[in-house]
Design a binder for these strands. Structure first.
Lengths: 188, 188
DNA sequence: GTCTTATATATGATTAGTCATATAGTAGCA
DNA sequence: TGCTACTATATGACTAATCATATATAAGAC
């Protein structure tokens, strides 16, 4: 399961609580990479702890609920390193809109077009989100110009990953727009 | 659940058995659109039948196991039409390689490159598969030039869907190649 | 004679992911 | 005073998907 390894990766960067993981990582930078909900994060933390790949210390707080701060162990880091070098099978992607279009020929234009328009709007939002994230990573990168090579390399790799996600969304958007135009021009 | 609707769409085209669905549809044209394994197909057929959206008749065969031939019912077609016009939320995609790269900065080039090369090979295979399918659909389309508009529209839509899948794979491949070159040139 | 492949359906077990809800204290707002 | 929002963890219930295996017959390969 890759979620476990993503969490391992995040905890290796920095010790964190489940809440931190959710609000700082999964809701922000990891959303488009590996979405995970709160329940799954906490359950995976339990699993990782039982595996011995992470440990936790409880921080008792007076004004707020106690926090369980997790960090990686030596076997955890070893497992992460192993996973990082292991080729994963291509993800199976299921795109509802494409499945719909595969069967949509019988529908009139007036039924197909709204579907495409809604997808267009949703995709534009996602693209904007990825672009905003790219800007944030770029800003992070600036102050580290004098930093060590590893950090630079990380920024560069993450930028590239974002770049791909943005390009893919752009491809999708252009395709959608062309399809909409073709249908409007009665070419489909 | 969209699998149910994909099956509904396939059965509306033509009556079929679970085995037909698996071998003719899901293993061939639907693989890259909505992969499904045999167990899931049979269980979904049961569910659709209980829902009253499909019915089946058993064909008794002497030399081979009996076949359960499924077809859509009127409520089933109505449900398909409703679904075809209902906007579905964007799929959440989880790409293991991108997740790995997000954390891969610490790895030496010699560890990252094989990962990228393996992905490249797998993606090339997938692209070839999609392109082969596009050729098949194009061949199907040729004899129907004189056919009714609905069939032409269907071919056109399916071509467009395939076109997008191909474009997305090409984008991915180009990105991968650029990344490999950048790493080899020590630019990352 | 055995092994594999094709035809055909069914089910048990498990994992991964989602949705909802519970608990519990603090802080700010109206 | 009550309402909402934030911090923080936990669990029950469920769906979707995957993996393995069972059953049964026939045809063809070696």
């Amino acid at each position: 399961m890759s979620l476990a390894h993503v969490i391992l990766g995040l905890l290796q960067e920095q010790e964190r609580t489940g809440y931190d993981l959710k609000t700082e990582c999964f809701d922000q930078c990891i959303v488009h990479l590996w979405p995970a909900d709160q329940a799954q994060i906490y359950r995976t933390l339990d699993k990782l702890e039982k595996q011995g790949w992470i440990t936790c210390t409880v921080e008792i707080q007076q004004d707020r609920p106690n926090r369980k701060i997790y960090r990686t162990t030596a076997p955890g880091v070893a497992e992460l390193t192993r996973w990082l070098q292991t080729h994963q099978p291509l993800p199976t992607l299921r795109e509802p809109l494409l499945a719909q279009l595969h069967f949509a020929a019988q529908l009139p234009d007036a039924a197909i077009l709204p579907l495409l328009e809604q997808e267009l709007a949703a995709r534009r939002e996602k693209l904007a989100d990825c672009e905003a994230q790219r800007s944030r990573v770029a800003l992070e990168a600036a102050p580290v110009l004098s930093d060590d090579g590893a950090t630079l390399r990380q920024q560069e790799l993450r930028q590239r990953v974002l770049e791909l996600m943005i390009q893919r969304e752009q491809t999708y958007l252009e395709w959608l727009q062309e399809l909409i135009e073709a249908i409007q021009a009665k070419a489909v």
